[in-house]
């Protein structure tokens, strides 16, 4: 029997003794690459009970146990390093981007709320919110600093708001500028996700839209794992609480998870949302599979979904 170990190819007799052994050189990098080949494609596995340590010493690969283990550790560390380095998939960038987007949203909402209250104290008549307000304050500062031609010039002069001095103005203006830059960063990341989704998962992008598609990839932990999910899982992904409540037998099954954000479901009548969710989820799972394994845009997926959507809507009339 011929067996392959990390340090040598060994020919074993029928009585279990070593007939022939050709040890590798003690080059850690080469040994590590050899090891990785076996890990991905196990073949000629040594039988159970085979003792590599004694064989390595008899073979002349290592002088003693100490040397054997030292080489083994170096080789395994080198192999693990290589494997870790090759383990990052391109969808990781999208996952991080979409998660960064969520973090920005959370932070921006908090800051926007603060700015609204803070600046509202000073100039309640401005009547703006979030991004508009942030831009307005970052550009103009306090209400007494508004230029003559501003549409708010008159309202500002008769405002009932609290007086603020130049020092307050500097601080609130800088605060608004930070918030504005956060909103700008959000737009940049959104564009980045859009662009990358078109390259990485064109079909998913077409069916789900860039944002929802990226979110699905992020929740599944990667395009590969999304493509291996049954469409029923995709359908309820993100509705974990409701799903587990259902599995414990205490509720009806959830109709949709994160895919609720798709206009097809969100804008449909509640009565047909379940049907829509099923149709959409099955298209999504097919789209993600095509993306994961071929990467070519296939317009037939979207067309099929559109036909299905039409028939659901007609059936409901």
């Amino acid at each position: 029997m011929n067996v392959k170990t990390w340090f040598a190819d060994i020919e074993i007799n029928e009585d279990g003794n070593v007939a022939e052994c050709s040890p590798c050189t003690q080059d850690v990098q080469q040994l590590a690459e050899r090891l990785l080949v076996f890990q991905t494609d196990p073949q000629q596995i040594p039988p159970a009970g085979f003792d590599p340590v004694q064989n390595a010493i008899e073979c002349g690969f290592a002088a003693g146990e100490t040397e054997y283990y030292s080489l083994l550790q170096q080789t395994c560390i080198a192999a693990t390093r290589l494997k870790i380095k090759n383990s990052y998939s391109p969808d990781l960038r999208i996952i991080h981007a979409v998660e960064a987007l969520d973090d920005i949203d959370e932070a921006a909402n908090l800051l926007a709320e603060r700015l609204g209250i803070w600046y509202g104290e000073h100039f309640p008549e401005a009547g703006m919110l979030t991004e508009n307000l942030a831009k307005f304050v970052a550009e103009n500062g306090l209400r007494q600093d508004l230029p003559q031609d501003s549409q708010f010039h008159e309202t500002a002069r008769s405002s009932v708001g609290m007086e603020m001095d130049a020092e307050d103005g500097t601080i609130i203006k800088a605060f608004a500028a930070d918030l504005t830059s956060l909103y700008e960063r959000r737009h940049v990341i959104e564009a980045y996700i859009h662009k990358n989704m078109e390259q990485l998962a064109p079909n998913l992008e077409e069916v789900a839209g860039a944002n929802l598609g990226a979110r699905l990839i992020s929740m599944a932990g990667g395009l590969q794992s999304l493509s291996r999910m049954p469409s029923s899982t995709i359908q309820v992904m993100g509705a974990n609480q409701a799903l587990f409540k259902h599995l414990r037998g205490k509720a009806t099954s959830p109709k949709h998870g994160i895919i609720f954000n798709h206009p097809l479901i969100k804008n449909s009548h509640p009565k047909i949302r379940g049907k829509m969710a099923r149709a959409l989820a099955s298209s999504l799972s097919i789209a993600s599979r095509v993306d994961a394994f071929s990467g070519q845009l296939n317009p037939a997926i979207k067309e099929k979904l559109d036909r299905k959507v039409r028939s659901i809507r007609e059936g409901n009339k």
Partner: peptide, 16 residues
């Protein structure tokens, strides 16, 4: 000795 492998496939680290 670190092994980045799947424990459900003992064959993939049997040569170590």
């Amino acid at each position: 000795i670190p092994l980045l492998a799947d424990a459900s496939k003992p064959g993939s680290y049997a040569n170590v």
